[in-house]
Computed example of a mutant assay.
Amino acid sequence: MNNNDVFKKLRVALQLRDDQIVAILELVDFRISKAELGAFFRAEDHPNFMECGDQVLRNFLNGLVIHLRGTKENPTNAMDVIEKNRAAIKSQSAPTDRPAPSKGAPAPRPKAKKPAAKGPSQNKKFDKAKKPAPIVEQVKYNNGKNKKG
């Protein structure tokens, strides 16, 4: 079992999304993009597969400790954090009220809409959405080193 397998299994077991993993790595001042992260989770025969190094996994595990346990000054319960992640995932992938089409039936056609009148936006779907609150707390991680400012 290599580092990629460990990373994949932790991601599935803790139900973490890519943006949450990036935020966890930022807790220990380790910056990584979602694209680089996605390369770790690809199949080994994929051309963009990248081997997960020891440093990446080590920093993820250190950040995961802070994410789940909190800091010495602000401790948290790990199960509360995991339940909060589950709730966030369920709220984003809520099922729709529409029944699934049967195999033999053709898909229903959408009805044509009338053009909207000029002026303020009538469709709130396209209005600017508020950014959701971050799931991961921002914690300063100093690695036990005193830095001169």
Rank of each mutant, 00 (worst) to 15 (best):
S121W: 03
G119Q: 06
D45G: 07
G38D: 05
N2Y: 00
E83Q: 10
N74G: 05
I135E: 03
K111N: 01
G104L: 14
A129T: 06
K90I: 05
K148E: 12
K103A: 15
A133K: 12
A112N: 10
H67I: 02
Q138T: 08
Q55W: 07
L27E: 04
M79W: 13
A100E: 10
K90S: 09
R31W: 10
L27A: 01
N59S: 11
D19E: 15
N59C: 12
Q20S: 11
Y141N: 02
L16W: 02
E44A: 11
P120C: 04
A129I: 06
P47W: 07
K72I: 11
N59M: 13
I24N: 09
A105G: 11
K103D: 14
A43Q: 12
A117E: 14
I21V: 13
T76M: 11
N85L: 14
A87W: 08
N3H: 13
I24G: 10
E44N: 09
P110W: 04
A100G: 01
A105H: 13
K9M: 11
T96E: 09
D45Y: 07
A39K: 04
S121P: 06
Q20D: 14
S91I: 06
S91T: 03
M79K: 15
I82E: 10
T71N: 10
V28Q: 07
P106H: 04
G119T: 06
F60R: 04
L64M: 06
Q15D: 15
T71I: 10
K84I: 03
